[in-house]
Amino acid sequence: MKKFEILVSPASCLDRDDIDTDQIIPARFLRTTERTGLGKNLFEDWRFDGSGNPKPDFVLNRPGTADAHVLIGGRNFGCGSSREHAVWSLMDFGVWVVIARSFADIFKKNSLRNGLLPIPVDAANHAACLEAAEAGARFRIDLQAQTVTAAGVSFGFDVDPFARTCLLDGVDDLEYILKHDDRIAEFEKQHS
């Protein structure tokens, strides 16, 4: 997993509640057997019309979006299907941080397992983030300090301490489970 330390980047605003993973990556793109290459279909049906032409009013079709590694969503971001393809698709597109009012449980876990940082934010800071992002501000995300700063924005955020350590060190948590092999074997012996 890629190390996450400090990210400085503009942000895109997709301020809708309950953005489900079927919107992030529609099911017809899940017939792949790879983790890569899904960015081109991120938000496919919101980004493109039925003929494959970009919808100009959709935020990720605006000029400069490719430089924005932060996405700001609404409440319950990533609800619905457990498809990890949603996270792979966001990361392949270049989204490394999602700031949202709240996250669905499985999406949050999938994000942290891949190095995408989900940042939950309260209403006041959410409004400030949207305003700053619309004004083109650069966001500074510091995972070590657990802070977000931009023009008119400054707040600390919560992240699971174990996941934070994994992200900062770029360590996969499978390694952590594997280290407890003897305990797993003991459990299996007791329960066989």
Partner: peptide, 19 residues
């Protein structure tokens, strides 16, 4: 339900990290 990374964890260790 779990993601694909966790499918790999279960295959490898028969365990998951859970809160």
């Amino acid at each position: 339900g779990i993601g694909t990374t966790e499918v790999e964890h279960v295959l490898a260790t028969q365990c998951l990290l859970e809160h």
